[in-house]
Simulated scan of single mutants.
Amino acid sequence: MAALRKWLFTGLLVIVPGVITAWVLSWIVSTLDQTLQILPGAWHPDRLLGFHIPGFGVLLTLAILLVVGAFASNFAGRKMVSWGDALVSRIPVVRSIYSSVKQVSDTLFSESGNAFRTAVLVQWPRDGVWTVAFVTGSPSGEVAAYLRDEFVSVYVPTTPNPTSGYFVLMRRSDCIELDMSIDAALKYIVSMGVVAPPDLVAHEPGK
């Protein structure tokens, strides 16, 4: 029975990751294929070629992102984006949602941003209990005026779902900067500590 149990769990460890990966990829491809609906019926690849091309929506989505990105990178594109932002900011309710989403996306995707650029070790939720978190920036404005010491904005993700978590302000001196990459830190969190970063090196206190 012990051998059968071992074989069963070994089989699960081999099959489950592959099945879940295939399912996620299939969901992404099928979802992006829905972007083909924006094309006129006569232009649909299925109708033009006479057969379905799985994943064509992925290529179309990438093409749209590249075209929009190229257009928004020049002077005229930046002006139009600015006018669009100004127009949306005048619409009640919509402006609140749009401005919040835009601030988050600008922080996450901006090349000059500091979000999720550094993994740190912090004591959370109490002293003596440690977890891995991410520095997302520094407090400013009225918040910074009340904080006399040097503080940083820290995102403490939950496990195994790092998309939810806690935003806290912590003294920089209380955050131990780690050498591990953001990808390695996320993998460490998602796996609940099972998959430790291979390049993880312990540092002696005070060094």
Rank of each mutant, 00 (worst) to 15 (best):
T35F: 14
P92T: 00
T107E: 11
S30H: 04
P205A: 13
E142Y: 11
L12K: 02
W83K: 14
V129Y: 10
R47K: 15
K187T: 11
S153R: 10
R47Q: 09
Y166G: 02
V67C: 07
T61W: 13
L169S: 12
I28D: 01
Q37C: 06
L186K: 11
A70W: 10
M192K: 10
S140W: 07
G41D: 11
E150H: 12
A119N: 07
P54E: 04
S73T: 04
L12Y: 00
M180N: 10
P17I: 01
E204C: 09
D33S: 04
S138D: 06
W7M: 09
A196W: 06
G165E: 06
V67R: 03
F116N: 03
S164W: 02
G113D: 04
T35P: 00
V152Y: 01
L87Y: 14
A63I: 01
S30V: 01
P125H: 05
R47I: 05
N161P: 08
L121T: 02
K79D: 07
V29T: 03
D174T: 04
S112W: 04
L8C: 06
T159G: 09
D149S: 15
Q34S: 15
R90I: 11
F75S: 14
P197L: 06
L169T: 05
V152W: 01
N161G: 11
V129N: 07
G55V: 02
G84E: 06
V101M: 14
L25P: 03
L60C: 03
P162C: 02
I176P: 00
D85I: 12
P157E: 07
W27D: 15
V129S: 13
A202P: 01
R171V: 00
E150N: 14
L87C: 06
H44I: 01
R126P: 07
Y146R: 12
Y155K: 05
G77I: 09
G18H: 05
V195S: 14
P205C: 13
S99C: 09
R172Y: 00
P198N: 08
V67E: 01
S30N: 13
L39S: 06
W23F: 05
I20Q: 01
V129W: 05
F9I: 08
I20W: 02
A202K: 05
F51W: 08
L13G: 13
K6E: 05
H203W: 12
E177M: 11
A184P: 01
G11F: 07
I28S: 04
V154G: 04
Y166A: 08
A133D: 02
A2C: 02
A119C: 13
Q103W: 12
W130D: 07
M180Y: 03
A184C: 03
V19D: 00
S138Y: 09
G69R: 05
L62C: 15
M170I: 04
T158Q: 11
